[in-house]
Write a protein that binds this DNA or RNA. Structure first.
Lengths: 341, 341
DNA sequence: TTGTAAGCGTTATCAA
DNA sequence: TTGATAACGCTTACAA
């Protein structure tokens, strides 16, 4: 019985559509007999209320959205996983959008915004003004891995201190004096903060200011190219490569091996994220672990709360949450060299 | 001006709502002057038609859905990426749902079905009858990595022949006679077919029938446990581990190393999927590559076509598409041992 | 406890 | 070229 409506059910059960509505959402008392008749009709007709119609009447979509710059790679996948899991408990649909780095993103995001009760927005996918606009229309928005803006909530993972820590490790423990930063401070807020921490660690010590970043997107392929370029400086070849994420580090592994350099011994390499593969590499990758799944989950929970508040009508200050990250020392930095096979 | 409606715009522009609708969707000719007034009003009010209302009137949701058993791991993430990319070109929202292996899945899927114009369903997330029910309600459904059912379209990657090929490689090239299959034929159609190919390869040759599968989910952790169990048979320790996916193989790597076995030399290990990390392992993993991103993209394109046909009203036979997979021989099977560092 | 009817914000059909 | 107005399928006062 394809696409039966509330009217079909009402007719079949010999009641009004109001009663059907009451039965199926339990919003008001209904006599046992009536309820049974309605339930039977619902079952027989396989009736499911139209989400569109219900949403229109209730003035809510029953969905939340999440916007990414890109969907590939373990990082985003972990965030989605966390976001979906947390939303799911709340029986909300999850709409997902990737801007694919396009410029026309703002428009698609506005489109998406018109289809959800709340929106999580990642990094630099849309300009600040779009976010402000969304907020001013009353839509709950939580920002991910991105500086706070307007009255939107913001959750992110700590970058600066961890970047200082990993740089310090290279500088102090292993005595490196020429470390190259592989990544792009301009492409993402995360990248910028990691770069800052990197520079700060140098300044806090009495060592030469580091050279500018060797630009690379977060992809392995570009990481490889950047690492080659960095390593191809006979005069001042860096002795360590601090990569802005693990995928870049992967590219660096390949480049180093090609150059006949042993990772850990001849050149140190570090990553960021601690994706699943990091500990399986040889040598295992020293990196910074960030709680990606938790990031997504927290965003979803925050959104849920805000949506609830909207009807409750309380006015809480925007959330600013920074999740802890932690240095994971393995062997690619040069630690535990003796253990290497 | 939060949440202005078509009426607000009409009032402001001094026209009827019908005219606003015509202007903003270009469905009928409108005088230049009128158009301009309406456009101005739209801009000033930042008007965006409600998707709910529009959907109700147009009888379409403007979204497609995709259902997974699980969202973690590189495999699903690649499929999502492909699916989203292909849907995006069509300006459709993508609703994503993970059943998390729960039994109550059917109900959530039916829920989701009430919110989309088409649905892609993965593996064994819902029972056949649910699929038939969905189809009979007229909803376009495409099945992923799953046997065809009812009138739903189905796309999947080839398993059996590839499983035969990789088993043959182990049997013929490397002369193994005791190969353990790590995975669970009962948990997914893919797993079942891989197991069948594995057994078939044995039967086609004059070798002993393989032992039953060593059960393992597709997770690294369980793969590790299964590999330990397999390797812990002093009497008849297998000389090769054929894993149902790369993550299980990862667990097998750990187990083998723990047992003091050199992978490739003392024990062969093979995987399935060719996830990014496979070639970065040491030794690099011999596996079967399947086009995961393409699988998702094809599902999305198929859905799009079916949805278009629905209004056009043509009645094509359900699609049955099997994407090619291919054996990727690296070193974990024992090949190129001399090159090993 | 149940029914009637007024929305919810669009699209689309008819007239004018 | 424009404007009324009837759907679209549901929720929810308000009456009975």
């Amino acid at each position: 019985v394809p696409g039966s409506t509330i009217h079909d059910v009402a007719r079949r059960a010999g009641v009004s559509i109001a009663t059907v509505s009451r039965v199926q959402r339990g919003s008001a008392p209904v006599t046992d007999g009536t309820r049974r008749r309605v339930e039977t009709a619902i079952a027989e007709l396989r009736y499911r209320p139209s989400r569109l119609a219900r949403g229109l009447a209730e003035r809510r979509h029953g969905t939340v959205g999440i916007v990414f710059p890109d969907l590939s790679g373990p990082y985003f996948s972990a965030v989605i996983d966390g976001f979906e899991s947390a939303s799911d408990n709340d029986d909300r649909g999850v709409l997902i959008l990737s801007t694919h780095g396009r410029e026309a993103a703002a428009d698609r995001v506005r489109d998406l915004a018109a289809a959800v009760d709340g929106l999580a927005i990642f990094g630099r996918t849309v300009p600040d003004e779009t976010i402000a606009e969304l907020r001013s229309s009353g839509l709950p928005v939580v920002l991910l891995a991105r500086p706070a803006v307007a009255s939107a909530d913001a959750v992110r993972a700590e970058n600066r201190t961890a970047a200082e820590a990993i740089t310090a490790h290279l500088l102090d423990v292993h005595g490196h004096r020429r470390i190259a930063f592989l990544g792009d401070p301009d492409s993402s807020p995360d990248g910028a903060e990691r770069w800052e921490g990197f520079v700060a660690a140098h300044r806090q010590r009495d060592v030469a200011e580091p050279a500018g970043p060797v630009r690379s997107s977060y992809r392995e392929q570009e990481g490889y190219v950047a690492a080659r370029a960095a390593l191809d400086q006979p005069a001042a070849r860096p002795t360590a490569l601090l990569c802005a994420n693990d995928e870049i580090a992967l590219g660096a592994y390949a480049a180093a091996q090609e150059a006949g350099l042993r990772i850990g011994a001849d050149v140190a390499v570090t990553g960021w994220d601690d994706i699943g593969l990091a500990r399986h590499l040889s040598p295992p990758l020293t990196t910074v672990r960030q709680p990606m799944r938790e990031l997504g989950a927290l965003a979803a929970r925050t959104l849920k709360e805000r949506i609830a508040e909207l009807s409750a009508g309380s006015g809480v200050a925007p959330l600013r949450r920074v999740l802890a990250t932690r240095l994971v020392v393995r062997e690619s930095c040069g630690c535990g060299l003796a253990d290497r096979r």
